[in-house]
Design a protein around this nucleic acid. Structure first.
Length: 276
DNA sequence: AATACTACCTGCGTGC
DNA sequence: TGCACGCAGGTAGTAT
């Protein structure tokens, strides 16, 4: 479930449910999810630790414990589920944090792509994947001039460039399609061929779409019971993603779908034309 | 250095 | 019903 708005929704859910909880035991059922340290050390170091806060950078969650930071990425299908009392694990539950009051936080991930790393306190932001991130897509942090410079230097198609988290953090397959539709830019348009005006529109569209999705609690596509952050309703506001064949809300032309850089890509063939 | 492709996993829908 | 194949909200590693 993870683009920036969904991860932010999960973060808020975690803040409301697990702040102040102290870990009694950690169970690791799929060791590959723990990047570092070694699984036994990961489990042992967390015993007795209290969750003091939960932050986010791009699509990464950062749990702030008494003596550690824990960086967690949900990748494609990772979910956190909170249970007030002891519960049974299902086949896709891979990590279980048991708290001293018998409540549990369970990490569930059908495809097992998610990753967690335990780091020294206050060093979560130094995690390699986080260090490489571009700015958060907000008015305060996302600089237009810098964005334009980066786009002007890139010869690649705009969609894969925006999916690369180094230019701006947080966009994924849904929001890139939505942003490009809003900006009337073809997903395969080479980045360095965009006009100054187009870059400006794109920059603002990124901020606007992410903000609206955050406010909506993200997009919920396939439904999962109990997962944190499943209250999202941005799916009602999608203009192109998953709307193949439906009329473009702007011009009525049927929304088309194609492959761009191996990813399913939705766009309006009339509003978003490839230019040269 | 920038860009392209693939591996990592499982489940679901489609078509034969 | 069985099976092969393509597809799914992401990223890191490898190759060019």
């Amino acid at each position: 479930m993870p683009e920036l708005p969904e991860v932010e929704t999960v973060r808020r859910g975690l803040v409301s449910l697990v702040i102040g909880k102290t870990i009694r035991r950690v169970d690791v059922l799929w060791p590959k999810i723990i990047e570092s340290p070694e699984v036994d050390q990961f489990r042992n170091e967390l015993v007795g630790e209290t969750i003091e806060g939960v932050g986010r950078r791009g699509k990464y969650l950062i749990f702030h414990f008494t003596h550690y930071d824990m960086v967690s990425h949900l990748r494609m299908e990772g979910k956190y589920e909170f249970f007030p009392e002891a519960t049974t694990l299902d086949k896709h539950s891979h990590i279980r944090f048991v708290f001293t009051d018998d409540s549990e936080l369970i990490y569930n991930d059908v495809r097992k792509f998610g990753r967690m790393s335990l780091m020294k306190k206050n060093t979560g932001l130094q995690y390699k994947g986080i260090q490489q991130l571009g700015p958060e897509p907000t008015n305060e942090t996302f600089d237009l001039a810098e964005f334009e410079t980066r786009l002007n230097k890139a010869h690649t198609m705009i969609k894969p460039l925006l999916l690369n988290q180094k230019i701006v953090a947080g966009l994924g397959n849904i929001y890139v399609d939505e942003v490009l539709w809003l900006s009337k830019i073809h997903p395969e348009q080479p980045a360095n061929t965009l006009t100054t005006k187009e870059v400006e529109i794109l920059h603002q569209a990124i901020i606007t779409v992410i903000n609206k999705a955050k406010e909506a609690g993200g997009t919920t596509i396939r439904t999962y019971l109990n997962a944190l952050g499943e209250a999202g309703h941005f799916q009602q506001e999608l203009n192109v993603y998953g709307q193949t064949g439906k009329p473009c809300p702007r011009c009525g032309t049927p929304i088309a779908k194609m492959k761009v850089a191996q990813r399913g890509t939705h766009y309006c063939p009339h509003c978003q034309q490839l230019k040269r």
